[in-house]
């Protein structure tokens, strides 16, 4: 029986990854469309991929089904850890998978006595997951846009669809400025700045990542997104967020995080190295300088770091502890960092 289960699961594995890719396609297929509203978030895509597993599953008992799902989610997490697009998806995949596994267990334990009926219940409900991403972002934008007041300057870092929804909603009723960090190595901030200034017509300034201390005293609030929210209410986000949060607190500026609640992960990092990061990505930068000015004066000769004497580290994400976070804007409401563990405990108790 057990061997039978593992073989079916082994056949599933590539399919799961295909599904995951397929569900994410709307966000990655079209790179120009930075603010694709229909784009599926990573955890939701993971949940949808797992739904595919349930649909195809030949399992006849709950244990079998759980085994298959476990293997499928492990497989997705592995794939996410080894992806090299510079963003750490593993936490997002992890939170999505954990939520779904919990959901399946709950359904099977509490709902119906018959296995097949349960499976159908899981599938029919699962179809509604598609709408969750979008609704969550709308709800967050609704809750959080009041935190931006007329005439303020908002400092943000990296590209986040939730943050963009908030800023857009706020911009529809008031005037404010955006300062955005360039966002090395992938220039996410610079790209976001283009979107904010051109599409949303919000006055936007781009500064170097290292200029955050310089610019901090001119901003009123700091608002960032998150790749994942960990159990103690801290966040994992694009490299530089921790420095930004530390800097904001030192300057007495509120530091807000916008994240959908399906990004809550049961993870308790104590050190930066505790977060699951991608392996060694070679250091390479997206150059955001334009070549229209005189090249000799502006461009600097590239430094060759390929010699073995210099060690290069280029992790995509860092961990920001909860003590630096003022409030989290989530679709469950505006939460203090300590509320995150509260929500997680209530779910997994």
């Amino acid at each position: 029986m057990t061997t039978g289960t593992s073989t079916t699961a082994a056949d599933e594995i590539p399919l799961v990854l295909q599904d995951l890719k397929k569900h994410l396609q709307s966000s990655h297929g079209d790179d120009d469309n930075l603010f694709d509203k229909s784009a599926t978030a990573m955890p939701v895509a993971a949940i949808k991929a797992l739904l595919g597993v349930v649909e195809r599953s030949q399992a006849t008992t709950m244990m079998e089904m759980q085994n298959e799902l476990k293997q499928a989610s492990d497989c997705m997490m592995n794939a996410a850890t080894t992806s090299t697009d510079g963003r750490s998806h593993s936490i997002a995949v992890r939170s999505g998978c954990e939520l779904f596994l919990k959901y399946v267990t709950r359904t099977f334990l509490e709902e119906l006595p018959d296995f097949e009926q349960c499976r159908q219940a899981v599938l029919t409900r699962g179809e509604r997951f598609a709408g969750i991403s979008l609704a969550a972002r709308d709800r967050i934008a609704d809750l959080a846009s009041d935190f931006i007041q007329e005439g303020q300057t908002v400092l943000t870092h990296g590209w986040s669809r939730v943050v963009a929804s908030i800023l857009l909603q706020a911009a529809s009723t008031k005037h404010f400025d955006i300062v955005i960090l360039e966002g090395r190595p992938d220039a996410a901030g610079a790209r976001a700045a283009q979107f904010y200034s051109q599409r949303a017509k919000i006055p936007t300034t781009v500064v170097l990542d290292s200029a955050m201390g310089y610019i901090m005293d001119t901003v009123d609030i700091v608002l960032v997104g998150a790749e994942g929210v960990v159990e103690n209410g801290g966040i994992v986000n694009k490299m530089g967020t921790n420095a930004l949060a530390t800097c904001a607190q030192a300057n007495g500026k509120p530091f807000y995080v916008a994240a959908e609640s399906y990004k809550f992960a049961r993870l308790y990092p104590l050190l930066q190295r505790d977060i699951p990061n991608v392996g060694n990505i070679p250091m390479q930068f997206c150059d955001t300088t334009t070549n229209t000015t005189k090249e000799k004066e502006t461009s600097f000769a590239p430094v060759d770091l390929s010699s073995d004497k210099v060690k290069v580290e280029n992790p995509p994400c860092d961990y920001t502890p909860p003590k630096f976070i003022t409030l989290l804007f989530t679709d469950l409401g505006v939460l203090t960092p300590s509320a995150v563990s509260d929500e997680l405990i209530r779910l997994y108790q």
Binding site: D138, D142, Y262, L332, L347
Partner: peptide, 19 residues
Amino acid sequence: RLSLQSILWALPQHVKSPS
């Protein structure tokens, strides 16, 4: 009421957009 549980059940309040 909104909670992680109600997300799991994909209850209408999570799917329906507030706008």
